[in-house]
């Protein structure tokens, strides 16, 4: 959905669902996601519908992702680090209501 205008000055590697991708120092995790072929970050707990980053400034909480093993982090506010492991979040297992 997005592409970089220039090669990064300081390239580093992060892992999106296990696949290595190139990021630039200073990128937020959500930016790296939006430059990947699939901009989706998670499925919602309520309906399982897909979401992608929306506001990119920490307001909407739609860009929640698992980052270095921690669930539900705001990907638009977390700067990338070399070797960072980023995962799209599936819909959480709902409560059994019987």
């Amino acid at each position: 959905m997005f592409k970089r205008r220039h090669e990064p000055n300081h390239a580093l590697t992060v892992y999106l669902d296990g696949d290595p991708i190139t990021a630039a120092a200073g990128d937020m995790v959500a930016a790296v996601l939006l430059a990947s072929p699939d901009p989706r970050c998670r499925a919602t707990p309520v309906s399982g519908s897909p979401r992608a980053p929306y506001c990119m400034m920490g307001v909407c909480f739609d860009c929640l992702m698992e980052i270095d093993g921690v669930l539900n982090r705001q990907a638009c506010l977390v700067p990338v680090a070399d070797g960072m492991r980023i995962r799209r979040q599936p819909r959480p297992e709902p409560m059994a209501l019987t």
Partner: peptide, 19 residues
Amino acid sequence: RLPAMFHYPINGVRQTAEG
């Protein structure tokens, strides 16, 4: 909202229907 983890209500900790 979190994945289902508490089947029982506990005094002081309760997982809601929404998770």
